[in-house]
Nucleic acid binder design. Structure first.
Lengths: 200, 200
DNA sequence: ACCTGAACACCGTTCAAGT
DNA sequence: ACCTGAACACCGTTCAAGT
């Protein structure tokens, strides 16, 4: 077992730690991440991570940063067609977000925690802002075409995003007995659209 | 400092561990909870918790159970006036939930994780169901009076609850620059009500 | 019944040292 | 520059033993 050779000692240990770290948190949870075990897997001494990450938290922050970059790219792709109507664009970004969350639940948790930390690196905060700016943009253009009520677009986006965030939290916690997630996403999005419609 | 005497060795060590444990997770996070440190605080040996909790996870589960009982009681209180219109009842339960979440953020996280665990004790799952049944009840009576669209009330309640859950997640992660949480709660509730209104 | 102390197998982190 | 080994101060958990 563990068929991979070891192309390390070259300077790709940093990348190897990130990959192995992500796999570890998705399969066993952030709580059980062990630098020593990671080192064992990669066939290096347990002190070598120190060269690339000051401590365990630094590795987690680097993982979260990478997560925000990937989420941002996915949201940008979903929102890129500015010619489409609000409902379509919102549906696309919402599904992109939910899809990311379902595929990388531990990563998403890590990303939120990292942003929340008092001493979060500036880089991380910026990556987060950049990722969510793509959702925000859909709302401002929705207001421009009259599909969304007037008001502070940041607040409206936040309210809608909260619904998605909650859906994801509930779903990764397996709290859907029979209901398919795909159906629920559609329902949540529909309610958001109705809730944000200008009152006739 | 640490002015409390020690009325332990009586059989209240179990309760003392729960209290100290809750205080510890709210102030330092679940990750940093240490049974040995808890024992030190309480002036007992680090093996004595074993008598009351099989392991660390058992203590966390007991804390989560207690949390669900308190949340359930708060939601029941908020929802008890069945004569009030849907909007009023929904607002009350929503504010009760958000209020609990703000006051006990680490506890709420623990509660969700505990329910999610594959080997979660039956007792815990039941306490969770009981707590959320009070929110569910508001939706079924909302449908009865025509304030809420027809459809599976479980799904509708889930959709609305997701929005609250997301608001709470976002708020405990401090992602509200200027906006007051109280204002945002009101906005979320309003959007939920509008989103669930029957289409005339 | 309830608590203790020694012991075991793990951690993260530091430091002097090797190539 | 990058990695190593010994060492330190912590964990959770087990077990034989004390009252």
């Amino acid at each position: 077992m563990k068929a991979s050779p070891r192309p390390y000692h070259h300077g790709n240990l940093r990348q190897a730690l990130l990959s192995a770290g992500e796999r570890a948190i998705e399969s066993a949870g952030v709580l059980h991440l062990s630098l020593r075990e990671l080192s064992r897997e990669l066939g290096v001494s347990h002190t070598s991570p120190r060269r690339h990450f000051a401590d365990k938290q630094a590795l987690l922050d680097a993982l979260a940063l990478h997560g925000y970059e990937r989420l941002g790219a996915a949201l940008a792709r979903a929102a890129r067609d500015h010619g489409q109507p609000f409902n379509v664009r919102l549906t696309k970004v919402a599904r992109a977000f939910v899809s990311f969350a379902i595929q990388h639940p531990a990563m998403l948790g890590l990303m939120f925690e990292a942003k929340h930390r008092a001493d979060a690196p500036r880089e991380l905060l910026e990556a987060g802002e950049n990722a969510f700016a793509h959702i925000f943009g859909v709302f401002t253009s929705g207001q421009a075409t009259g599909a969304v009520v007037a008001g502070d677009p940041h607040r409206l986006a936040l309210v809608a995003f909260a619904a998605l965030q909650g859906l994801v939290t509930l779903s990764t916690n397996g709290k859907f007995k029979g209901a398919s997630l795909n159906v629920l996403i559609g329902e949540v999005i529909e309610r958001i659209i109705l809730g944000l419609r200008p009152r006739d």
